[in-house]
Amino acid sequence: MLGALTKDLGVAVRTIRFKLNGEPVSAEVPPHWNLVELLQNRFGLTGARESCGQGLCGCCTVLVDGAAVSGCLYLALLVDGAEVMTIEHQAAGGGLDAVQKAFIEAGAFQCGFCTPGFVLMTRQLLDENPDPTEDDIRHYLSGNLCRCGAYPEIIEAVKLAARMRKAER
């Protein structure tokens, strides 16, 4: 696919190197790909998905150098040299982390399409603020949309995850 693209459009494909979920990787990337396309087309990672296409829904959340970004609005070339982490990253030993377990326990999702984004954003929130108030939670996660309307359960899950993380420490 890429071969045809470069030949036909005369696009300058660039090779970039970065860390993906802890592993050093490299990839050939056309300039106009966004980060979601890079992850899907080159690495088969589909946990970050483009939905609204405008950075509003959070389905495409990816961590770049430790900060959450909307993969659909992030040029793939810009992760050259960066550390990229996706929902597919597994902590040492594998298995689910406290946030994922809390989401299951609280029933904090239905169709699951927005769930990876919510999980990643919740981890970010709890890293920054281990004991968030409900208002903190609502503000921090206001940029993630769940059309199934699992918000009450998501709030419950975040509180539960905070407690579980504290207990782990």
């Binding site: 950075g55 959450a68 206001s142």
Partner: peptide, 12 residues
């Protein structure tokens, strides 16, 4: 800033 766009937009 707390109410501006969302966390991901503000990060970038």
């Amino acid at each position: 800033l707390r109410m501006l766009a969302n966390v991901r937009v503000r990060n970038v």
